[in-house]
């Protein structure tokens, strides 16, 4: 085709690219507008945006169209303190625990029953601990598998299939302490517990909170061991986001002193906090 077609194709290409790019960067959710009544900068105006991964009963889960749970209520306290409402984003756990979601501005805080550890501390900042947890072992009550510590667990589970959840401290613990077991990795808690319930795996390793909750609701399952892994949960914020971090820590501290924390704890775990 003679020379004219070049100009045409160029014009069309440029125009189309411009149209497409105009759609980007035009994001109502971005922007550094300060929230109402505070100097704290949030990723979305008027909202405290939380990244989490569902389901993780009883910390965060979908109950009939609404996301509820222990973590949800704690972060609600922070939102109230900042004079905004909480908006929860359900997103793959890898992005949360690697800090990427916080870095790219997807959310202000990450509340996903996350254990505080050194690796994660490198990726983002943690709040003060808000929950004491430990790794636990979930099995069928009838299976008769028990343990008192890592060593006895390794014995009891030798040659068996043990389910873990991807990117969790439970997965790390199992990799370290159960060399003779076959580890099966599941993407979320729901799939993991279902697998244990349907005998796809012989046992499941995860935090005691959700496993105890599951065993409570499913009598044929039981938590037969808790390992003293001394884990503590923290809420994550983007590295250097001191404003939001301060708000979180203050909200939690206030809750502990004025009894709100105990109330929430009892609501979700059926007993007062021991620690």
């Amino acid at each position: 085709m003679p020379a004219r077609s070049r100009t045409i194709t160029s014009a069309v290409a440029v125009a189309a690219t411009a149209v497409v790019l105009a759609g980007c960067g035009n994001s109502p959710d971005s922007g550094q507008a300060p929230a109402a009544g505070n100097d704290v900068q949030l990723v979305a105006e008027g909202k405290l945006t939380t990244c989490t991964h569902l389901p993780y009963e009883p910390f965060q889960f979908n109950d009939g169209g609404k996301i509820v749970g222990f973590d949800v209520e704690l972060v609600d306290l922070v939102a109230t303190k900042l004079g905004v409402t909480q908006e929860i984003i359900d997103t793959p756990f890898e992005g949360i625990q690697s800090g990427e979601d916080l870095n790219i501005g997807k959310c202000d805080v990450a509340a996903a029953a996350m254990t505080i550890n050194d690796v994660r501390k490198q990726n983002f900042d943690f709040s003060e601990p808000y929950f004491d947890a430990t790794q636990a072992l979930l099995v069928k009550s009838s299976a008769g598998i028990t343990a008192t510590d890592a060593a006895t667990a390794a014995q009891a589970l030798a040659g068996k299939r043990v389910g873990v959840q991807s990117s969790t401290t439970g997965q790390e613990w199992a990799q370290e302490n159960l060399p003779n077991s076959e580890l099966v990795v599941f993407e979320d808690l729901g799939l993991l517990t279902t697998a244990a319930q349907t005998d796809q795996v012989d046992a499941a390793i995860n935090d005691n909170g959700p496993l105890l909750d599951f065993a409570k609701k499913n009598p044929e399952m039981a938590v037969t061991a808790e390992f003293d892994t001394d884990e503590q949960y923290g809420i994550g914020v983007k590295k250097g986001n001191t404003a939001v971090l301060q708000a979180v820590n203050e909200a939690i501290a206030t809750a502990r002193t004025d009894g709100t924390y105990d109330k929430i704890y009892e609501k979700w775990f059926g007993k007062a906090p021991g620690a």
Binding site: G23, C24, S27, P28, V43, I104, G105
Partner: peptide, 15 residues
């Protein structure tokens, strides 16, 4: 992840 990292602004999720 790429677009926010490259251009410094996060896209609306629908976009």
């Amino acid at each position: 992840f790429g677009v926010p990292l490259a251009f410094g602004t996060i896209l609306d999720r629908t976009v």
